[in-house]
Amino acid sequence: MFIIDLFVKTGLETLYFTGVIILAGLLLGVLETQTNRNFQKSLGRNAIMVTGVIGTPIHELSHAITALIFGHKIIDIKLFQRPDRDGVMGYVNHAYNTKNIYHQVGNLFIGIAPIFGGLLVIMVLMGLLLPQVLESFLTVVSQGMAVETLSLASFNGIFTAYLDLLKLVFAGENFQNIGFYLFLFLAICISAHISLSPADIKGALKGLIFIFLILLILNAIGLSQSILAVDVLKYNVLMSSLLMIAVIFSLITFAISLIVRIFAR
């Protein structure tokens, strides 16, 4: 019974800390696949190059920078190329010491890095070109962090806040601002390449397994409660708030690709 409880507890803790990221990654992957399919069917195979020339380097640099942070050695890097027969437009090959736990755990963060790297660039662009929208977003995040318990009311409050944020992005006065169009174009390019490739997911799983094993050992020796002194609810609200921006712009990009496909018939 102790062994079963130990594995269940460790599995739940791993899910608490990575579940939101995994869910967002899967959703972003579906949106990106459908978006690219719409663009290719409506504008041709090379249409993806338009967004890729901006989005792909950000995707690959996110991998590379995170790999260096976790002590990996960059063997080969290609920030952008014409899609090969597998659709690959860029890559980062890196090496690490398989006996080094820090290196192994780093695989998870290296794998998911494009989501947060793309999100960071979108937020920087938002601050430069649409500062009032960034201010509103930060307000939404702070409101979410004040949530003490999950309830229908708190979910409704967070959902309403994001609807208001979306309305602010597409406010009428923004359509008279050249910075809005520049931001929208760049955000579309980034969000069209923000999701994880099969290779990214494979690498992230290696790190996820090691995180599970570390938590398993901590639980087995009774140190998990003192070391993992994190408010899980606030952590997941923060992660959800950050990832929601990536999802929102991926949804916008998907909607635009769908409209283009419909009118290109």
Results as ranks from 00 to 15, higher is better:
Ala47Gln: 08
Ala47Tyr: 08
Ile48Asn: 00
Ile48Phe: 05
Met49Gly: 02
Val50Glu: 00
Thr51Met: 10
Val53Met: 14
Val53Asn: 04
Val53Asp: 02
Ile54Gln: 01
Thr56Gln: 04
Ile58Asn: 01
Leu61Met: 14
Leu61Phe: 11
Ser62Phe: 00
Ala64Gly: 08
Ile65Glu: 05
Leu68Pro: 00
Ile69Gly: 08
Phe70Cys: 07
Phe70Lys: 00
Gly71Thr: 11
His72Lys: 13
Ile75Pro: 00
Ile75Gln: 15
Asp76Pro: 07
Lys78Phe: 06
Lys78Trp: 04
Gln81Glu: 13
Arg85Ala: 12
Met89Phe: 08
Gly90Thr: 03
Val92Arg: 01
His94Asp: 02
Ala95Lys: 13
Thr98Val: 13
Lys99Gln: 14
His103Leu: 03
Asn107Val: 04
Asn107Ser: 09
Ile110Phe: 05
Pro114Val: 12
Pro114Phe: 10
Pro114Ile: 12
Phe116Trp: 09
Phe116Tyr: 14
Gly117Tyr: 04
Gly117Leu: 01
Leu119Ser: 06
Val121Arg: 02
Ile122Leu: 10
Met123Tyr: 07
Val124Ser: 07
Leu125Lys: 05
Leu125Val: 06
Gly127Met: 04
Gly127Val: 05
Leu128Pro: 08
Leu129Asp: 04
Pro131Ala: 11
Gly144Tyr: 00
Gly144Asp: 04
Met145Val: 12
Met145Arg: 11
Ser151Tyr: 06
Ser151Ile: 03
Leu152Ser: 12
Phe155Ser: 10
Phe155Gln: 08
Phe155Val: 13
Asn156Gly: 13
Asn156Ile: 13
Phe159Tyr: 13
Phe159Ile: 11
Asp164His: 12
